[in-house]
Write a protein that binds this DNA or RNA. Sequence first.
DNA 1: CGATCCCGCCACATT
DNA 2: AATGTGGCGGGATCG
Length: 878
Amino acid sequence: ENIFDRSRMAPKTPIKNEPVDLSKQKGCTPERNPITPVKLTDRPQPDPWTPTANLKMLVSAASPDMRDREKKKELFRPIENSEQSDTPDSLQYDMVDDSTVDEFEKQRPSRKQKSLGLLCQKFLARYPSYPLSTEKTTISLDEVASILGVERRRIYDIVNVLESLHLVSRVAKNQYCWHGRHNLSQTLKTLQEAGELQYGELMTFQHKEQDLDYKFGERKKETIPDTQDRQLLDFSEPDCTSASANSRKDKSLRIMSQKFVMLFLVSKTKIVTLDIAAKILIEETQDTVDHSKFKTKVRRLYDIANVLTSLGLIKKVHVTEERGRKPAFKWIGPVEFPGKTDEPRGNNPTSDPLPRTQRGVCAPYQICATGKQRFTRHTSFNGEQPCEGTRRKVSSEPNSPRQERQDEYCSKVINLAAVCRQKIEEDTRNPSTTSTLSLLPVPGDSDFCVNPLPQAVFPMVQADVPNLALLNGVSSQTLHPSMPAASKTENGKPTLLPSQPFLCFPSSSLFMLCGGLQENNLRETLPTTGEVGNRNAEAQAAVPPTACQKRSSHKCTSPSAPVDDEEPAAKKQTMEQSDAPLSLVVPKKPFESPKAESIPGSGCTPSVHLEAFHLDLASPAAPEAADKESTKPLDSQEQEKWSQNKDPDEPSPGKEHISKENANQPFLPQYLYVQPTSGLSSFNFLFSANQAPGAISLAARQLPSLSVPCVVVPSAAMGSFPVVCSPPVTGPLSPVPDGSFSAAASMNFSVSGLASTAPVFIGTTAVVTPKVSPTPSVDPQQPAHPTLHLSPVLARSCGALKLDSPVCMGHPVTLLKLQQPSSTPLTPKSIRPARHEAFFKTPGSLGDPVAWKKNEGNQTRNASSVQRRLEISSTSPD
DNA sequence: CGATCCCGCCACATT
DNA sequence: AATGTGGCGGGATCG
C-alpha cells in the first residue's frame, strides 16, 4: 500500500515524499525539486542504490533500472553500489518506464533481503572491527540509514544492540562513535561476571534447560533480586544518574541485549532458547503474565539475535526438547576472556592478556574498560557515571559512561562539523555569495585541544600556503617528525606536529589532495590516510581524531595513541594496504612547481596542482582551468583510483611510490585521499591549491587551520558536495597571522551526510597572491583569521566556525554551492561518484564546469544556490 | 501453522 | 513544535 501511495504521491506531490528524506538534504531539495520532480524518489534517500524499501519500490516501479540496482545492492558493498550508481540511474528514474515494474518490484524485495541481520552486516561492513585506537569513527544515523536504504528506526535497533556491547557509543544526537571490537572481550567478560552473579545459579541447572525453562524464569526472579540485576546490567548506562536514567523507559533493548548475552556466557551449554531467555528477561516476572508480553519479548530477542548473529557471536540452532523443537541460539563467540574474571580489574593493560590491540589501540578505551569494571562492580556507579548523565544532558548524551573524553572530543568534532555543515548549507542557501567561510577557531581555542596537543597544531597552521616555502622547510622538517605517527618515534620529537599536512574531519572520510608535501609528510600522511581508508568505511569520523593525534603527534599521542606510535607506519601501512585501499595518494605529476615553494606566492602551486590533476586524469585541463576547474576530468580517474585503493593490494604500492616520488620531489603536489568509511557515502576531497608543497599543514588536533589552500569537497554520498576552494592567495589578504587560513580556506564537512546536500564552493578571490604573510604561522587560534578553518579541532572548538565571516582577511571569498551538475571548478567532479553524476545531471547543468572556473573571485553571486547554479550554468562564461 | 521478524505507529525524550 | 528515540505489536513472509 505504501508503495502505491508513494508512487502516487511522488508524482503528485514530490514534496511529501521529501519530507522524510528531505529533511536531511535540505539544501538540495529545494533546488532539485523544482527541477526534477522525480527526484522524490531519489531524494528521499540519498543513496540511489539503497533507497528505502518504499522508495525502492517506487523507484523500481518507476524504472527498471532501479531493479537492477537493487539487485546489485544485494551484492552488498555499498561501495560497489555507489560505483554503480554512477550510472545516471537517478536521472533515469525520472524517466522511468512504467514498464510493469510492479511485478518485478514485488519480487525483488524479499523479506530476507531486508532482514535486520543482513542490514546489520552491511552496517558492520562499513566499519573496521578493530579501528585504530586513535581514530574515532563517528556514525551518523541519518547517513547510515540513507546509505543502507533503511529507515532510521532500523538503525536504532542495530545500534542499540551494538551499544550494549560497547561496540559503539552514543556521542550525540544522531551521532554514534564506532569503537569496534577492541573492547569486546572486556565487555563480555564484564557481562559474564555480571551474569554469573545474576544468573549463575540458574545456570547451574541449566543443562537441563528445557525443563528448567520455567524454573529458570522463576528462579531467576526469586533468586535474584531484580534490583541487583538491573544494576549490573544497566551498569553502563542509566544508573548513574539514577534520576534521569530511568526516566526513559530505559533502553530495554540495550539491557535486554546485555542480559541475553549474559545468559549465553553463563550458560554451560552456551545455548539459550528464546523461550527461556524471554522468560528470564521478562522482568515483571510474573511470568506468564501476558502472553502478549512474552510474545513481544521474543520478538525483541529476535531482533537482538539478528544483530548478535551478524556479529558472529551467536548462531541459530534448534533445540529439541521435550516440548519439541524450539528455536535457540548458540554462543559461538569467545568464551574465555583473557583478563577473565580472575581479576575484575583486569584492565591493566600490562598484565592483560588481551591482545595488544586492546591496549595499544584502545588506549583511549581503557578508560572505558575501567568504567566497565566498575560497572561490574556496582561501585562504579559512583564515579564517572554520574558525569555521564550530566553529560548526556548537556550534549545530548552519550549513554556510555566511559570514554567520556573521547566522546566529548568526538562530539565536539562532530559538532563542529555539523556546525560547519550547517553554515555551509546556510551559506549556500543564502546567496550571500561572497560570504566567506571562516572556520576559525574561536578564541575558545582551548577547546580545541581536548586532547593535549593543541598548541602544536597551530603553528602548523601557519604554514599557510603563502609561506609555503617556509612551510616546506619547516613543515618538511618538522612535519617529518610529526609524521611520526607512523614513524614518529624515530624523530623523537614531536615538534612536528603542527605541520601536519592533513586536515582531519570528523566526518567521514576525507579526500584530500595536497600540494606537494614533502616526502615525509606524504608518507606519513599517506599511511594515515591509508589507514583510514583501510578501515574501509570506517575511517569516517574517526579519522580526524586519529589523524590529529598522530600528526600532532607527540603531544597527542601520548595518552591514547601510544601504541600506534610504536607501531610505526609500517604496520599501519601494511595494514592499510592490505585492508584497504583507501587512501590513495596520487602522485602528482612531477610537475612540481617546486619553485612554488620558493615562490612566495603560492599562486603557482595551484595551477600546478590542477595540472597535475589533469595529468592524472589524463584529462587535459583547460589551461584556464588551471586554476581549479579542471577537476572534472579527475573524477573518473579518481574514482577509479578510489576503487583501486580500496583494493588492498595496490594501494600500498602506489602509495609508496608516490611517497617516494614525492620525496624526491619535495614540491610535488600530492593528494591524499581518504575514503569515506563506507565508501560511497561521502567523500571529502581536499587538495591544496596553490600552496607549495608544504603548504598544507594541518595541525592534527588543533588544526584548525589549514594553511594550505585546499579544496575540500565533502561529498555526501548523495549529492551534495560542498566544495571549497581557496585561492592561493593568502598572504596579502590576510594580514593576519592566519595566513594559513586565509589561504586555504576550503573545507567541507561531510561528516554526516547532510553536509553533502549543500555543495559549497568557496573560492578566495582568486588569485593567489604570492604574498606570504610572514606571520602566517601565527596562531591560528587567533580569531582574526577570517578564513576558513577546517580543522576538526576547530570544529570541536565548538562553534568556532565562522562561516559567515564574509571576508577573510582581505580576500573575499566566495562561496558557491556547487551543484552537482555543474561541476565544481576543480576537482569536484572527480570527486563525485557516479551517483552524483546522476544527481547533478538532473539539474541539468552539467556543462557548467567551465563557468565555474571563475569561481574564484567571480563567483560571488548572491543568488541562492539554485540561482547560482542557474546563473553559473547560464553565465558560465563568467 | 508456527517461527520469524519487517514495518511503522506512536509515545516519550530532547532540542 | 519539531525532531530524535525506541517500545511495541500487527500482520506478512518464511519454512
